[in-house]
Design a protein around this nucleic acid. Structure first.
Length: 675
RNA sequence: GGCGAUGUAGCUCAGUCGGUAGAGCGGGGGUCUCAUAAGCCCUGUGUCGGCGGUUCGAGUCCGCCCAUCGCCA
């Protein structure tokens, strides 16, 4: 069975962020899983380099578009290298092989009679590279970019997409391979189906307003529409139209023996699940097996956006905790297919519980005890009937099933369960007591063998997700093997060499001190693009906030950073915060919370709820009637399930961090602006 | 507005053919000590979004409503 996995090709105008990284890492994890099973796997990623945005940047800089592309493509390539992404090929749409393939595909569409020329004019957004009907504009501007569109007239080449409505619906019904839904997850398949069922219009597939693209064969002055260009990369990388199509026949499916899976973010699902199969049908080419769509990472439960400045770039976390820790976190934290929230706090909690306490500590105790007992060697007796073996076999089965049904987080869960079983086994057998009471017995050998052998299997299961860590664990167990060299036979019980060298080593994943990590000013906002918190909405978690806190606590923070270390802001930055005088009209302590106080405040005519961590210093009675200063335009945050809409200002007393509310002269009317 | 989902413990989620709810993490308390302040033990009275219906019995089926999200218009 051959398997061909692809990521989307990434537009080089964009700096890579966690979204690109996630798609690529998930694909890498899946390909590593299938390689480990001994299958013939190919993994493609690359960059999309044509289009108006690049053209404009180039013009602005006075350079050729290819120079812009050449400058940015390596940032993706290098990032994948850093994250141990093992792609077989990296395609750039500016490469000759791509142009050749796209030209060949278009020749086939033409031959099928599916291309025709028609006039077209309308409002055109440069950012979207798309026309908008008048009614879709907001105040005459592009709804996505908020920029004024240009009125453009074009004579375009059209593709008879409408012709493929019924064949596409049949595809969604039956799948390209029986039994495998064409789109994963099901809810996305429903979306695509209803989109197509609503009726398909023919698609404009050429552009005349742009020069930076692939010349449209037979239509001088036209370049190929971005998606017809980009999607085709999956085939041009295999050599479509090159004269040597051996890779096409090896990986592009024409039967049960080949599987093609496109991984995509949900935002570009339609292009992959509608346009792409339609192009292929027209060209008389086989269809991919499945389009797998994953959710988005949100930052602290909010959409990531450049304007909010909360785009996650996890460089600092990777610097501090390693590539494998991030890979593990991304795979296990997101329920695959759904959206998930990324936060540094959640990362540290998971790092400590799964990697430091779980994998790392279990490895440490097992290796140290065995090395001490057997003079720096692995046990010399094996054991083929015990609960660790049964746990390992169950874990392999669960892990296998999880990967095969795209439930990546459950594959990670299987590893955690196995590690827990090994840890529990060690605890139950108490080998540290046995060795004191009975000395080194055959039974002691067997106990240690089981623990170490269980860890060896766990490391193999970990390999697709965190290959570096997996290889390191194997090396420490005295069973060294590169992650890429692990094969199906390694999943079977009994691979640990007997009497092999074994030496304790420094902690694999040293426990992280969350408090210390966040207390360091340079690391307060390590993963976001903006380094200066411009508005309170983007304020970092206060250093003393509990690690489990779900959102920034809008409470006075005892920031240890000296004033001199705080970056200067402009007055404009300051005025982003809407400070108002408010009167507290009700206040009660949040049950189950030590320090949270739920208050109703009146700002002018408006009443709203604010939750703040001041219950250690004030009772509800002391607060009611009091006038305070609040940040009125803070994004809402949920604290202990209560939505808080603002932040009460208070001083943080030195040492204890105890809050002391800012006093306002009682005569100042509620709602008054503070500046 | 149309279509589709989702709403279960502080967080992330399981709950198969309907029999009055579970796991991991986090929190709190205790304890051992081989191990990375790790391990182990104890600790959850949750209106299973709301209302109504079917049923001997509903988180689980049906209807309506509310909230959130996605796709489309």
């Amino acid at each position: 069975m051959s398997r061909y996995f692809t990521t989307p090709i990434y537009y080089v105008n964009d700096r890579p962020h966690i979204g690109h990284l996630y798609t690529t890492l998930v694909t890498d994890t899946l390909t590593r899983f299938h390689r480990l099973q001994g299958e013939d796997v190919r993994f493609l990623t690359g960059t999309d380099e044509h289009g108006q945005k690049i053209e404009k940047v180039a013009k602005k800089e006075g350079v050729a578009p290819i120079d812009v592309a050449d400058r940015h493509a390596p940032t993706f390539r290098d990032l994948w290298k850093r994250f141990e992404v093992a792609n077989d090929d990296f395609i750039r749409t500016t490469e000759p092989r791509h142009r050749v393939g796209v030209t060949e595909l278009i020749r086939r569409l033409e031959a099928a009679g599916d291309l025709y020329v028609a006039g077209h004019e309308g409002w055109y957004c440069v950012g979207c590279e798309a026309f908008y009907p008048e009614k879709d504009l907001e105040d005459g501007k592009c709804p996505t970019h908020g920029t004024p569109p240009e009125w453009q007239k074009e004579e375009n080449v059209f593709f008879r997409l409408s012709k493929y409505q019924e064949p596409l619906l049949a595809l969604y019904e039956k799948g390209s391979v029986p039994g495998i839904p064409f789109v994963f997850p099901e809810t996305r398949l429903n979306e695509v189906r209803s989109f197509v069922a609503a009726g398909l219009k023919d698609l404009s597939v050429s552009r005349t307003a742009i020069q930076w693209g692939i010349p449209f064969p037979g239509h001088p002055g036209h370049v190929v529409y971005v998606w017809l260009d980009a999607l085709t990369n999956y085939l041009t990388a295999l050599g479509l139209g090159s004269g040597d199509e051996s890779l096409v026949s090896r990986y592009w499916p024409a039967g049960d023996e080949r599987r093609v899976v496109h991984l995509v973010g949900k935002d570009i699902l339609r292009f992959h699940a509608v346009y792409w199969p339609a192009f292929l049908m027209s060209a008389g080419l086989p269809l991919p097996t499945q389009v797998v769509s994953h959710g988005f990472w949100l930052k602290d439960a909010r959409k990531m956006s450049k304007s909010v400045g909360n785009v996650v770039r996890p460089d600092a976390l990777v610097d501090a905790f390693g590539v494998d820790a991030l890979r593990w976190h991304l795979v296990s934290e997101m329920s695959f297919g759904q959206d998930a929230s990324f936060s540094d706090e959640a990362f540290l909690v998971r790092y400590n519980s799964d990697l430091a306490n779980g994998l790392g500590n279990t490895l440490s105790r097992a290796v140290r005890m065995a090395a001490d007992a057997f003079g720096g060697k692995t046990p010399s007796e094996r054991c083929d009937d015990n609960e660790v073996k049964r746990a390992a076999e169950a874990a392999v089965a669960a892990w296998d099933a999880a990967f095969r049904s795209c439930r990546l987080h459950e594959a990670a869960e299987a590893v955690r369960v196995l590690l827990g079983a090994i840890d529990g086994y060690i605890t139950a057998k108490e080998p540290w007591k046995k060795v004191k009471a009975e000395g080194v017995t055959p039974a002691l050998h067997r106990v240690h063998h089981n623990a170490l052998e269980g860890l060896r299997v766990a490391a193999c299961l970990l390999a697709p997700i965190a290959p570096g860590a997996a290889a390191e664990v194997l090396a420490r167990l005295g069973a060294p093997k590169a992650a890429e060299a692990i094969g199906p036979s390694d999943l079977a019980w009994g691979g640990l060499p007997l009497g092999a060298p074994l030496a304790p080593a420094a902690p694999l994943f040293p426990r992280a001190d969350a408090k210390a990590y966040f207390a360091e000013p340079s690391k307060e906002k390590p993963v976001t693009e903006e380094t200066k918190p411009a508005a309170p909405a983007a304020a970092p978690i206060p250093p003393e906030a509990p690690a489990a806190s779900p959102a920034p606590v809008p409470a006075p923070a005892a920031t240890p950073a000296a004033p001199a270390e705080t970056p200067r802001i402009t007055v404009d930055d300051f005025f982003k915060a809407d400070l108002r005088v408010a009167e507290i009209v009700a206040a009660e302590k949040v049950e189950k919370s030590k320090k949270l106080m739920k208050m109703t405040v009146r700002i002018g005519e408006e009443e709203r709820t604010i939750v703040a961590g001041i219950a250690t210093a004030y009772t509800g009675d002391q607060l009611v009637g009091r006038k305070v200063v609040v940040v009125a335009n803070l994004l809402p945050a949920k604290l202990m399930g209560i939505e808080s809409n603002g932040m009460v200002l208070a001083a943080s007393l030195p040492g204890t961090g105890e809050p002391s509310l800012l006093a306002v002269d009682p005569s100042v009317p509620s709602g008054t602006k503070v500046k």
